[in-house]
Deep mutational scan, measured.
Amino acid sequence: PEDEKKAKEALKRANGDEDKAKEILRKLGVDPDRAEELLRRLR
């Protein structure tokens, strides 16, 4: 869904750096736990 698209985009923008991607997602208003879960799934 929408969050998943955001997560993929964030990872791309962060050049695969998960911590940076998490930060980006947090700024986009995605719940930190949700962000973590999404990134884990994309790994």
Rank of each mutant, 00 (worst) to 15 (best):
K22R: 14
E4H: 10
K12Y: 13
K5S: 10
K22D: 02
L38A: 04
I24L: 10
V30I: 15
R26M: 15
L25F: 02
K22H: 06
R43H: 06
I24T: 04
D19C: 10
L38K: 00
E23T: 06
K5L: 14
D3P: 04
K6R: 13
L42T: 03
N15M: 11
E9H: 11
L11I: 06
D3Y: 08
L42W: 05
N15E: 08
K20Q: 11
R26W: 09
E23Y: 05
E36S: 08
N15I: 04
K6T: 11
E4Y: 15
E23K: 07
N15D: 09
K8Y: 13
L42F: 08
D33R: 13
L42C: 04
R34S: 08
E18G: 06
R43S: 07
A35G: 04
I24R: 03
L11S: 01
D31Q: 10
G29Q: 03
R40T: 06
G29T: 01
E23N: 06
N15Y: 09
D3N: 05
R13N: 09
A35R: 02
D19T: 14
E9W: 15
L11Y: 07
L28S: 07
K22T: 05
R13E: 14
D3G: 06
D17E: 04
K20M: 13
G16I: 01
R41D: 06
P1A: 14
A7E: 02
K27M: 14
E4L: 15
L11T: 01
L11W: 11
A14R: 02
E18M: 15
K22M: 14
D19M: 13
E23H: 06
E18S: 08
A21R: 01
E18K: 11
D33L: 13
R26I: 15
E4S: 07
K27N: 13
D31W: 04
L38S: 02
L28A: 10
A21P: 00
E9L: 11
R41I: 08
L11V: 03
A10D: 00
R26D: 05
A35T: 04
P1V: 13
R43D: 04
L25M: 06
E37H: 07
L42N: 03
L42M: 07
E23R: 09
E4P: 03
K27I: 11
L28H: 05
A35I: 15
A35E: 01
L42E: 03
A35D: 00
E36D: 12
A7H: 02
E2I: 09
E23S: 07
E37T: 06
R26Y: 12
K5I: 13
G16V: 01
I24N: 03
R34W: 14
E23I: 09
R26S: 11
R34A: 10
E36W: 06
P32Q: 09
P32N: 11
V30A: 02
K12T: 09
K20A: 12
R34M: 11
E4V: 14
K12Q: 12
R13I: 14
R26G: 08
E18D: 05
E2K: 07
L25Y: 01
L42R: 03
K8W: 15
L38R: 01
D19R: 14
L28F: 07
V30G: 01
P1H: 14
D31L: 10
R41A: 11
L39A: 00
R26P: 00
E18R: 11
L42I: 11
E23V: 07
G16L: 03
K5G: 08
I24C: 05
G29S: 03
P1I: 14
L25K: 00
L39I: 14
A21Q: 02
K5A: 14
L28E: 09
L25C: 03
A14G: 04
D19G: 12
R41Q: 11
P32V: 08
E18A: 11
R13Y: 12
L11K: 02
E36A: 12
D31P: 15
R13H: 10
R40P: 01
G29L: 04
D33Y: 10
R40H: 09
L42P: 02
A14I: 02
N15F: 11
D3E: 13
E23P: 00
K12V: 10
E36R: 07
L39G: 00
D31S: 13
D3R: 03
D3L: 14
K8L: 14
L38G: 00
K8T: 08
K27Y: 08
E36H: 06
E9N: 08
K5Q: 14
I24S: 03
R40L: 10
N15V: 04
K12M: 13
K12N: 09
A35M: 07
A14M: 04
G16M: 05
P32I: 10
P1R: 13
K22I: 12
R34Y: 14
L39R: 00
A7S: 03
R41Y: 08
R43Q: 08
E9T: 08
D31Y: 04
K5W: 14
R13S: 12
A10N: 01
E18N: 07
K22E: 03
E36G: 06
R43F: 07
E2Q: 09
D17M: 04
A21N: 00
D17Q: 05
R43I: 11
L39E: 00
K5T: 10
A21I: 03
E23G: 06
D31E: 11
K22G: 04
L39N: 00
E9G: 06
K8C: 10
P32C: 07
E36P: 00
K12D: 10
E18L: 15
D33H: 12
P1W: 15
L39D: 00
K6Y: 13
K6G: 04
E36K: 07
A35V: 12
D33F: 13
D3Q: 07
P32T: 09
G16Y: 11
E18Y: 15
E2R: 07
A10I: 05
L42Q: 03
R41N: 10
K6W: 15
L38F: 04
K8H: 10
K20I: 14
E4K: 07
A10T: 02
I24W: 07
E2M: 10
E23Q: 09
P1L: 15
K22V: 08
R41M: 12
L11R: 02
E2P: 09
E23M: 08
K22A: 09
E37K: 07
V30F: 15
R34E: 08
E2T: 12
K6F: 13
E23L: 08
P1D: 15
A35W: 08
D3W: 15
R40V: 06
A14Q: 02
E2F: 10
K5N: 11
L11P: 00
D33E: 14
R41F: 08
K8M: 14
I24A: 05
R40Y: 05
L28N: 06
E18T: 10
K20Y: 10
K27A: 14
L11M: 10
R13A: 15
L11Q: 02
A10V: 04
K22L: 14
E37N: 06
N15A: 09
D19K: 14
G16R: 03
D19N: 13
R41S: 08
L38T: 03
K8P: 02
L42H: 03
K5V: 13
R34P: 02
G29H: 03
A14P: 00
L28P: 00
K20L: 14
G29F: 02
A10H: 01
K8F: 12
D33A: 14
R40K: 11
E23W: 05
A14L: 02
E36N: 08
P32K: 12
R13F: 12
L39T: 01
E37D: 08
A21T: 03
N15T: 03
A14Y: 04
R40W: 05
K6M: 15
K6E: 07
A14T: 07
K5H: 12
E37A: 09
V30D: 00
K5F: 12
D33N: 11
D17R: 05
K8S: 08
K22Q: 05
A21D: 00
K8N: 05
K22S: 05
G29D: 03
K5Y: 12
R41G: 07
R26C: 07
L38W: 05
L39Q: 00
D17H: 06
K20S: 06
A21V: 03
A35N: 01
V30T: 03
E37L: 08
A35H: 03
L11F: 07
R26L: 15
R43W: 05
D31G: 09
A21F: 06
D31F: 05
A7Y: 04
A14F: 04
E37I: 09
P1Q: 14
I24Y: 12
R40A: 10
D19E: 15
P1K: 13
D17K: 05
A14S: 08
A10Q: 01
L28M: 15
A14H: 03
R13D: 09
A35Q: 02
G29M: 03
D33P: 05
K8V: 13
R43Y: 06
R34K: 13
D33G: 11
D17T: 02
K22N: 05
K6V: 13
L38V: 05
E37G: 05
I24H: 04
K27W: 09
A10S: 04
N15S: 07
E18F: 15
K12I: 13
D17S: 06
L28T: 04
I24F: 10
D19W: 11
P1F: 14
